[in-house]
Computed example of a mutant assay.
Amino acid sequence: MHGVKRTRQTADDIAAKKRREQSKIEEYLALTRDVLSRKKASDWSEDAFNLTTKLLQVNPEFYTVWNYRRNILLRGLFPQRTPEDVNNLLSEDLAMTMTALKAHPKVYWIWNHRRWCLENIPNGPGSQEDGDVAGWKKKCWDRELFVVEKMLDADPRNFHAWNYRRYVLAGMPVPRPETSELAYTKRKIEANFSNFSAWHQRSKVLTSLWSSDKLDKAKSREVEFELIRNAMYTDPDDQSVWMYHRWLIGSGDDQMLLEREISVIQELLDEQPDSKWCMESIVHYKLILIRNHSRSVDVGKLTGDCSTLLSQLQRLDPSRRRRYEEIAKNIDVGPR
């Protein structure tokens, strides 16, 4: 870095560093051999369990060792302990994996082990306010949702954390109202419109609410169009916004809706004449009009509009020129 005096390493310093690195490698290889030999011998002891902890702290992607660890718990440690002790062991493993995730937030095997821990929490004593829901299990799953929210505060676009959040919400002993997830995703989206994972989560929640008739689809979709419109005008170059808009439009059976949204996007394009996503979206929706509503629209005009926009896109976005040429070549004018 500028302003920082660099210290020249001597030959002895370099040799000492190499020896330390070689020593670490040898320690790791010896530990690996020990753990794998114990696994082969079906060693389900607490000593073996502690060695897996040590090895996984060095290499959290060692999925064979994660599997061995679970077998030690199931075959060696759980049978000798009370349900309360099992709960404590699993709580300790959740704490251990939390530490691992802080350093390795995208290692699948760590997330997978957390899932296994949650699924093996014993029922435990229920509490009066929980009714028939076991206290340990509810407390653990509630805490897990809090943990994943903290992780998403640190990295709002970590798709592993979003996938895990969906898993936790689906498995909670006392289901969380889906409408509260709408509020959560809205907060995340308004904090950063380019959070594709939050948009995706929102689409999942709405699909569930609409399919179960817990939310009026027509009314709530209009709320979504208003939300997405604000996002479009805030950042017209963000792909995630346009992908969500296409999801809202759906198959394009509603001609009036298509024409309305084309007009909205055209207004934005008039303000942002070099907006690639505005142009692409108008072409996309006009082609849907041609395909689905050819008997009630001016096909010739729509085709001409699309050809003009595709020509502009070729100049504006030359890296995708061939794609735009291919779309222009294959415009389906439909029945006349």
Rank of each mutant, 00 (worst) to 15 (best):
K329P: 07
P156M: 05
I265A: 05
A218I: 06
W242D: 05
W111S: 04
R6W: 06
L31R: 06
G304P: 04
D270K: 14
E222Q: 08
A30E: 12
E149Q: 08
A100K: 12
N71V: 10
Y68Q: 01
A161C: 06
L227E: 15
E224K: 06
A41Q: 11
R6P: 00
A48S: 01
P175N: 00
L257D: 01
R143C: 06
V223Y: 04
L94Q: 07
H160Y: 13
A95F: 12
S281C: 14
L248C: 05
F196I: 03
H2N: 03
S220T: 09
M256H: 11
K150C: 01
W116H: 06
N71K: 09
M256I: 08
F49R: 00
A134C: 15
E325Y: 01
G250M: 08
T179E: 09
M172N: 13
C306K: 07
D254W: 01
Y68W: 03
Q272C: 12
R38N: 05
D12K: 02
K17G: 04
W277E: 06
D130K: 12
D238Q: 11
R295M: 14
R8T: 02
N88Y: 04
G135Q: 09
K24Y: 14
I262P: 00
N123A: 14
G252D: 02
G300D: 04
G3R: 00
N120A: 13
L77I: 15
G250N: 11
I249F: 10
G334P: 11
P177S: 05
M151Q: 00
E224N: 13
V58R: 15
D93G: 07
F196V: 01
L182C: 00
S197W: 13
P122Y: 15
A100Y: 14
Y63L: 03
R75D: 12
K150H: 09
A154L: 06
D85P: 07
N50A: 11
I331T: 13
C117H: 14
W242A: 05
P125Y: 12
N123P: 08
G124C: 15
V86C: 12
Q201I: 07
L287A: 07
F49H: 00
L118S: 02
R165D: 00
S240V: 11
K301S: 15
A15F: 04
E26R: 11
C117Y: 08
H293F: 06
Q255G: 03
D153N: 06
D238Y: 08
Y184A: 00
I72M: 10
K18H: 07
E61Q: 14
W111Y: 11
W116N: 08
I228G: 04
V58K: 14
F146C: 05
A48L: 01
L31V: 02
A231W: 09
D317Q: 03
L55E: 00
R176E: 11
K39S: 04
T64N: 04
T303N: 08
